[in-house]
Design a protein around this nucleic acid. Structure first.
Lengths: 350, 350
DNA sequence: GCACGTTTCTACATCGGTGTAGAAGGATGA
DNA sequence: TCATCCTTCTACACCGATGTAGAAACGTGC
């Protein structure tokens, strides 16, 4: 009687009324295996038995136990989705899209929030939830080049988002470079020359911030415009508060600028808030563009010019790819770049 | 050799390298059960054996198989969260909060999107994912009174959000009535008398829209203000697009109004968008208030006066309650109302 | 030295399904 | 008529862990 004294012990929460396959089998007058066969679509079953079994399933309210099936078959029908944070609209909308895409394949999604913290991202990789997920969609933010090796895991996995890692892993990528260039060129075409950037990560070697920042610089360069390094405002987190704070800093610096490129939409929206508060007119005094095309961008005041990275396509493609891997596809790894689209709205066109 | 011809058949995706408890046991020179005991915290283990086992676990990179554990113990450490849609900021932020709260208890969250469709909500109830979730947090939108009986399920469950159902189910509720009254009273105190409402659900008997609408009407009544029924604008979905559309309808109607109460923030934000587009000044011409206090409300232009329903507390309380139920607590069911707070911002104060 | 309690560990059955092999019965073709 | 194939179903072992019961070793007190 030691067991009861220690925490781990516990009677089953379930009140033991659980109906098993054996019960269904008895009720239908067949063997348990036949019930199993009916439920998993095995073809060689007489129609009459099939119906009888299904009737019994219904009558008893039988619920297949996925744990038991998984134990034998190694499949759960669950895929994991590891994202930095759901309260960031981009990831919330991405998760929405992934769940819908997974649904099409009859899969359920288990979401893990990593907070963009390297340790938690590594943990999400190391422990695909105790064999519970058949595959993993992973949107890394905190990992660096040095972690690339950690991505060689046995569970099927598809990376979402940034082109950070090279190696034998499937990617479905945002077209960061061309997308950012397009947004920057758009600002240049409006005649803007002093274009501030919000959300840079000075010191980082390779992450979304760096890639987009470089693309921005490249576009300026190409247009023969000298970039002003002081117009690059760092921001660690990419949320509204950080965007607002960066814009306050920029205004406080006294530097002149006629456009702002937020490295994502929430940064841009935070900036718009501060500009408006200071009575600066958008786009007359300052044009603003972002990246992500979150729903809010269509309804902010002013509406936000931004790059639509093709979220829906990314989610659908990634799930398709993952499902293929889960089904044993071991072809060369894919690197897919989703097509983007620049949406011109009031924040640049008035 | 018939099996290979039919879809359901499949070799395990895993390449069979899986390390089991038996392997660890062999490596450490103990019985499998001892490994199990070490891993689940059974106290009567010699310190030296404990360390030896843990070393072997590490050495072999052992990963406990949750399906197998679940099969025997009936526990998975996973709770389900059923919400209408993650791309709605309120639910995204709620999910974020729930995941964090669950994390504190060592639980993982599996999210299901119901799309606020009655059938899918019933499905989420009927099939707690094949015994895979130990408990369910459920935020129903599509269910009506007639479905109350369906909520008597054997899996522990806590309802989030609205006070729709009575009966033997735990609720953690938003203070819809007092919160909405407070927002309405705030508008009244500003001297506004013709207050439009966005997002009503005419014909519904009992849902959030009705509750908030009634509370609004009550506040008007109490202040001796005649409500104008035409100022109640229906909107099925509560997103920005619906808010914008409702506001367009209101403007087109030609009715005069000096304030707008969005039954949630996204409706209010959609309305703000349209008002701004039409050159109507906020709050000078029209004051706007919402409900939910999503992050965006602090950064919109103008910032949005809104009711903070205490999301973080709701999530934490609900998870605590659920965990208690999962641990066998079968006390009387609880109905907890989270404290709200009215945040006065520019959309009403300028 | 012996009865008794505690600590430490192990053998075995079992959770609820599914893979494998094969039995039984009917149809087919030589 | 018999060998062969196809259809339909069943028996049984086993997936990887844990609950139960109990064995072995170690004090302790008398």
């Amino acid at each position: 009687m030691h067991y009861r004294e220690w925490i781990g012990s516990g009677e089953r929460g379930d009140t033991g009324l659980a109906v098993t396959m054996r019960d269904v089998a008895r009720h239908a007058g067949v063997s348990p295996k036949t019930v199993s066969n009916v439920l998993s679509g095995y073809p060689y079953i007489r129609e009459s038995t099939r119906l009888r079994v299904l009737a019994s399933v219904d009558a008893l309210g039988y619920q297949l136990n996925l744990s038991a099936r998984n134990l034998k078959s190694g499949r759960t029908g669950i895929i994991g989705l590891a994202v930095p944070q759901l309260s960031l609209p981009y990831f919330a909308e991405l998760a929405d899209a992934v769940i819908q895409a997974a649904d099409q394949h009859g899969l359920t999604v288990m979401i893990e929030q990593t907070g963009a913290v390297r340790e938690r991202e590594l943990a999400a990789l190391a422990r695909p939830r105790g064999h519970l997920v058949d595959g993993l969609l992973f949107s890394p933010l905190g990992l660096g080049h040095e972690d690339a090796e950690q991505l060689r895991i046995s569970t099927p996995m598809v990376l979402l988002g940034e082109r950070i890692f090279h190696g034998p892993v499937d990617h479905v990528m945002i077209d960061n470079v061309t997308g950012t260039r397009a947004a920057t060129q758009h600002l240049l075409e409006l005649g803007r020359r002093r274009i501030a950037v919000l959300g840079t990560h000075p010191g980082e070697l390779v992450d979304t911030a760096v890639i987009r920042h470089d693309a921005y610089a490249g576009a300026l360069d190409e247009a023969g415009v000298q970039p002003t390094p002081e117009l690059a405002m760092p921001a660690g987190r990419w949320n509204r508060a950080a965007g607002a704070e960066a814009m306050e800093r920029l205004l406080a610096s006294g530097l002149k600028f006629d456009a702002v490129l937020g490295l994502n939409d929430t940064l841009a929206l935070g900036a718009i808030r501060v500009l408006t508060k200071h009575g600066i007119r958008i786009p007359d005094d300052v044009a603003v563009a972002g990246f992500d095309d979150i729903d809010e961008a269509r309804f902010s005041s002013p509406t936000l010019t931004t790059v639509d990275p093709g979220r829906g396509q990314i989610a659908a493609t990634a799930v398709d790819l993952l499902v293929a891997r889960m089904n044993g596809d071991d072809s060369e790894h894919h690197e897919i770049i989703a097509p983007f689209e620049l949406h011109r709205r009031e924040s640049t066109l008035g």
